Simulated scan of single mutants.
Amino acid sequence: MNSSSLSRRIGALAVASTAAFALAGCASGGDDAAEQSGDDGITTLTPGILTVATGEPAYTPWVEDDDPASGEGFEAAVAYAVAEELGFADDEVEWVRASFETSVTPGPKDWDLNLQQFSVTEERKNAVDFSSPYYTTSQAVIATADSPAADVGSVAELDEHKVGASVGSTSYAIADAELEQEVATFNSNEDAVLALSSGQIDAFVIDLPSAFYLTGAEIDGGVIIGQFADTSGGDELAFVLPKDSELTGAVTDAVDALREDGTLAELEQEWLADAVDVPVLD
């Protein structure tokens, strides 16, 4: 989930509002788009509508059946919960699709919020805003269904098999700390996938969001065999907003409120624990 970005502030001209909406100040949309704010003070690209972007396609368990409007899946459910905190009803949320790369690089945006497992990095902050995190990733262990490591249930059992990770990554640091063996290193996750598929290693460690994607879309017969209990140093996933968006503070407040009242933990349990059944390796 690496991406480079250059800093640039995006401005747009405000347009005259209707009688139901006041004139908005700053906008971060396209050259002809302008944000407007309603009576509640929430400023959005389209008056009375919260435009939320996700990837195309969007994968389970983040979005079920590639249909974010259903509210099914962890990120879809989080988006609607945040929208409610901001004062938007479900039918006032409009979904659009955006590529991962363009979403975190400078340039006009046609959405108010965007979530597709974006990890917060200092480099990306030069081009976009982030809310506070709605999820901190754990490190997962993946294998193929016919791997000798496919049925391990503990760290001790995993240590009996050849395990790899991407060099210099959080995944490697966790694997190195948890396992007694010398962890095999690879220059990239793609190289580790090839090593797993060819039988050079029995399993490899990667962040849980990537594990969901790889086992669902890239690795034939891929399975997630477990996750480490320690999430320290895990990537923090957050909403992306256009640079200097007037919504950033409100979205952060909404995410914080959902964390404090236990909603995020409940949604995580429903969609990332119970639904996909990723056991913790003890």
Rank of each mutant, 00 (worst) to 15 (best):
K243W: 01
D91N: 11
Q116F: 12
E92Y: 06
L86P: 02
G199V: 14
A165P: 02
E178S: 06
K109M: 01
A229K: 11
G168M: 09
A149G: 09
S169L: 04
S131N: 08
I219P: 00
Q139I: 05
S17C: 11
R97H: 07
T170W: 04
I142P: 00
T51A: 09
G30F: 07
S245C: 02
V152T: 12
S119Q: 05
V52L: 15
G262D: 01
G30K: 04
A19W: 04
Q139G: 00
T54W: 05
L158F: 01
A76S: 14
S17A: 15
G71R: 03
T46S: 03
D146S: 03
L13F: 11
E64H: 02
Q200D: 14
L267H: 08
D67R: 09
S5M: 15
E246H: 14
A22T: 13
R97Q: 12
T263I: 04
E246T: 14
R124T: 04
E180L: 03
R124I: 07
P242K: 12
Y135M: 03
E190R: 12
T263W: 15
D66N: 13
G38D: 15
L23I: 06
T137H: 05
G38V: 08
V223E: 07
A145M: 04
D65A: 13
A203I: 09
T252R: 07
I142W: 00
S138V: 01
V93N: 09
G164Q: 06
S138N: 02
A177G: 12
K162A: 07
T252E: 14
R97M: 10
L264E: 10
V15T: 11
V141E: 06
L196Y: 02
G11F: 13
E56R: 05
A203E: 11
D90V: 04
E157K: 00
P61T: 01
D277L: 00
G87Q: 13
A229V: 10
D235I: 15
W62L: 10
W62Y: 10
E236Y: 04
G29L: 08
F88T: 11
P57M: 10
A19E: 11
G221W: 06
S154K: 03
K243F: 07
E190W: 00
T44P: 12
N187A: 12
A229E: 15
E270H: 03
T137D: 10
E85G: 08
